[in-house]
Structure formats: C-alpha cells, structure tokens
Computed example of a mutant assay.
Amino acid sequence: MTLPALFVPHGGGPCFFMDPAGGPPEPMWRPMQAYLAGLIDSLPERPRAILIVSGHWETSVPTVQTGDRPGLLFDYYGFPEHTYHLRWDAPGAPAVARRAATLLRAAGHEIAEDASRDWDHGVFVPMKVAVPDADIPVAQLSLRADLDPAAHIAIGRALAPLRDEGVLIVGSGMSFHNLRARGPAVTPVAAQWDAALTAAVTDPDPARRTARVAGWETLPHARFAHPEAEHLLPLMVALGAGGDGPAVCDYRDTVLGWVVSGYRFG
C-alpha cells in the first residue's frame, strides 16, 4: 500500500512540552498537537519507518543521517530548563537513509552521509507527539543550503518510491514563519498568504501545481510570510514525493497570529 507524503507544522520550540509536569500545552497549541497526534492513525497502514526533512538542517549537498541511535539536538533558546532534558528514544533508520541516498544518486543528485547528526527540534518535537512510544525508526534528510525550490521538488520526486516501501515521507516546517511578526495584526496578511499558498499546493493539475509552488515568491505576501525560506522548503520535498496524486490541506489553524496549514500528498 502506498503511503502519502506529508508537510506538517512543527510548532515553536518545545511548545507542546512546556509543562514540567507533563500536562497539556497552552490552549493555542492544542489543535496542532491533536493534528500531530492523529497522523499515524490517519494513514492507510502504519509505516515501517519515517524519512523526515526538517527546516532546521541545511547542508551544501543533501545529507542523510545514518546513525543507529541519534540523540536530541536542543537547538532552541530561552525555554524552561526542563525542555532541555526531554527524551525521545526512537531508533535511527540507517538502511532507509542509505536507500534514500541510492535513489537520489540514481536521479543525479550529489549526496553525503552523516552518522553523528542528532535530531533537531524540527524532528523530535513533532515526532514526540506523533509517535509518543518512539517505536518507528526515523531517518533525517537535510535541505540543500541554496534552498532552491525546484531542486527540492526534484529531490522529493526521486524519493517517491519509498512510499511504496512502507516509508512515510514527512516535511517538517511551518507554512508561515516570520518571527518578527506576531499577534492579531498579522492575521489578515497571514490569511491572504495562506489562501494563496493553499490554492497553489492543492491545484488539481500536477504540472501547474509544481510550477506555482516552485514560484512561491510570486504569491501575495510571500517574503513577509518567509523572510528566509528554510521552513517552507520541506513542503517542496513532500510535494515532489507526492507525485501526480491528489493534494489536500488537512490542517489549518491560527497560532501567534499566524495562519498555519498542513498538507497531504498522494
């Protein structure tokens, strides 16, 4: 059975785990938490592994993480002390990482491997919600540092066979990510951006969809929504991996004044 490819929001820092007693997050974050918590049950079958692309790892060439037991990289700042002692002990998936590298090389991409890389919070924060028992192996793939949209869509296309091999491909980022713009005054502009992005992502014509999303900078308020593009580029990988199948928006909410969406491909 073919699994979909997903683009999911990963929240802000350790937003789902701010209570040292393990209680629920602030009300603002609860709809996103519920969406992430339901991801695995929403799939046609439970994945044997997850390949995730986070907005928090950029390298000169795409790099696969091949470690057996990655630790957690607490690459956020200014949060409560207990959030730097979180645990999520899922195994790595080095065989899946190397299979991804083989597919990418066959498609003409230069690929590197990194056995020492730990999971950044774009991986372990959403996955700790989605897979709380840490019982699905995970491999990570970096973004290309040039953040070229078409190149990342092509990377996703090369990875598409993994979907028929029991591997869930996940892009982890945020559909709106401007840390300097927060609060209710931002929401109308964020909503216009989100509507334009969603229209492009869900275009029923696959070729037109690809062209519109690759040209994201032409959409209304694009560079306001993403002064830097690293949190949007995981969407390109998920879209490419989804191929010509349907594309839907399966999550939409407002946090920090931002309108934020998640997407499902295939």
Results as ranks from 00 to 15, higher is better:
Asp114Gln: 10
Leu143Asn: 01
Ala115Thr: 08
Ala112Asn: 05
Ala115Leu: 07
Asp146Val: 01
Met127Gly: 03
His109Arg: 06
Phe79Val: 05
Leu86Glu: 12
Gly71Ala: 09
Ser60Met: 06
Gly156Lys: 07
Val129Asp: 10
His109Ala: 04
Val129Gln: 15
Gly108Lys: 09
Ile155Arg: 01
Phe124Leu: 06
Arg87Asn: 12
Phe74Ala: 09
Arg99Asn: 06
Thr59Lys: 14
Ala97Met: 14
Thr63Ile: 13
Pro62Ile: 10
Ile52Leu: 15
Pro47Asn: 02
Val64Phe: 13
Ala158Leu: 03
His85Ala: 14
Leu168Pro: 01
Leu141Met: 13
Ala160Arg: 06
Gly71Thr: 11
Ile111Val: 15
Ala145Phe: 01
Asp135Lys: 09
Phe74Cys: 13
Val96Cys: 06
Trp88Val: 07
Asp164Thr: 11
Arg46Pro: 03
Gln140Ser: 13
Glu113Val: 10
Val53Pro: 12
Val61Tyr: 02
Val170Lys: 06
Ala107Glu: 14
Gly78Trp: 08
Asp120Ile: 03
Gly122His: 08
Val123Met: 04
His56Leu: 13
His152Asn: 00
His85Arg: 15
Gly92Ser: 14
Val96Lys: 12
Val131Ile: 13
Tyr84Ile: 09
Ile136Thr: 02
Gly166Ala: 06
Pro126Ile: 04
Asp114Ser: 10
Val167Glu: 03
Met127Gln: 04
Arg69Gln: 08
Ser60Ile: 05
Ala134Met: 12
Pro44Ile: 00
Glu45Thr: 00
Val125Glu: 07
Ala97Glu: 09
Val138Phe: 07
Ser116Val: 00
Trp88His: 14
Tyr84Leu: 14
Pro91Ala: 14
Arg46Trp: 01
Pro137Gly: 06
Leu86Ala: 15
Val123Arg: 05
Thr66Asp: 15
Gln65Asn: 15
Val123Gly: 02
Tyr76Phe: 14
Gly67Glu: 13
Leu72Tyr: 12
Val53Asp: 15
Asp120Ser: 07
Asp133Tyr: 03
Tyr84Ala: 15
Ile136Glu: 06
His152Ile: 00
Asp89Arg: 12
Ala115Val: 13
Leu51Phe: 07
His82Phe: 14
Phe79Asp: 03
Ala95Glu: 14
Gln65Glu: 15
Arg117Ser: 10
Phe124Ser: 02
Val138Thr: 11
Asp118Trp: 11
Arg87Pro: 12
Asp68Leu: 12
Trp88Arg: 05
Arg46Ala: 07
Arg69Ser: 09
Ala160Gln: 01
Arg69Pro: 03
Thr59His: 08
Glu110Asp: 04
Glu110Cys: 00
Gly71Arg: 12
Val53Tyr: 15
Leu51His: 11
Gln140Asp: 10
Tyr77Arg: 12
Ile50Phe: 08
Leu141Gly: 11
Ala150Gly: 01
Pro161Arg: 05
Thr59Pro: 07
Thr102Trp: 06
Pro149Met: 01
Ser142Tyr: 08
Ile50Gln: 09
Val61Ser: 04
Val125Pro: 05
Leu103Met: 10
Ala158Lys: 02
His85Asp: 10
Met127Lys: 02
